[in-house]
Amino acid sequence: MFYPLLTGTLDYCLPQVRDFYGNISNHWFIGGAQIQVIIEAQDLKKTFGDIIAVDSISFSVKKGEVFGFLGPNGAGKTSTMKIIACVSPRTSGAIRVFGMDPDNFPAEIKMRLGVVPQETNLDPDFTCYGNLFTYSRYFDIPPDIAHQRTQELLEFVQLQEKKDVAIEKLSGGMKRRLILARALVNNPDLLILDEPTIGLDPQARHLIWERLKLLQAQGNTIVLTTHYLDEAARLCDRLVIMDNGKILVEGSPVDLVKQYVGEEIVEVEKTEDVLSCLSGKNIPFEVIGEYVQIATGSSRDVVRTLFDHCSPHKVLTRPATLEDVFLKLTGRKLRE
């Protein structure tokens, strides 16, 4: 299999670094370790008629990291995933996956991808085993290796007992697990997961998270979209929050929470006393329904002030989460 080398194909969008021998290389060197770039996108744009789904976004995903795309419905996450997965051509901008252009080398790129689509599209004409085995053929995997790999993967997602069961007999969680297994038949270098745990019960979600962590530990690069912010916080090394086709922020979950919300959130029942008291003390707050939210570095101080001066009813303190960042940046208005 011929893969164009990463080096030399990305000259226009990567910082050039001279290696030990003085040759120009497009790898990033951080702390002496070589960081390969798996996906590099510059001013990526996708339009459907008048609708701008992806609006000139730039991002890069490094080898071995879990990179998340978050955003409300219609933010452009799935469109971005489809461009990366070489199934939807971009309108403009540049993108390289493994250093190759999806427009020119779709088969070569897809050979190394594993895709979990948002929609369950298992083949109902086959059993669980048949689905994985047939899918292996599309990757030119020889039958004996495909057979062995299929067995291993059914075990990996704990479906070995359902080996000969028809797809329609599986529960929603089992189908998602089988799709994850299917995405792994070709031992992909990059996994693209579009809402991997959508509609799953907590047990199934935890199993999938655990499997994804294991895959990451084995050096896989993972790109995922999700609506579950706890999932993103738990899995992602880095993430972007998108809205209306644009990237609003980028960073690690912890940094984003610190930067955009703070350490902790104090929630207090909304009363006239509390509102006037907070305004009087110059403490910034936000009214959400029947509650007042105060983002702070020290909940202790805020709570003390509240109890000393504002005669609050109910008070709750909790750590700030990614959800607070998300709602702060994308607003609370329903999208659809």
Partner: peptide, 10 residues
């Protein structure tokens, strides 16, 4: 959705 599944491969 078999075609969608297939074009995610080579």
């Amino acid at each position: 959705k078999s075609f969608d599944a297939m074009i995610a491969t080579p």
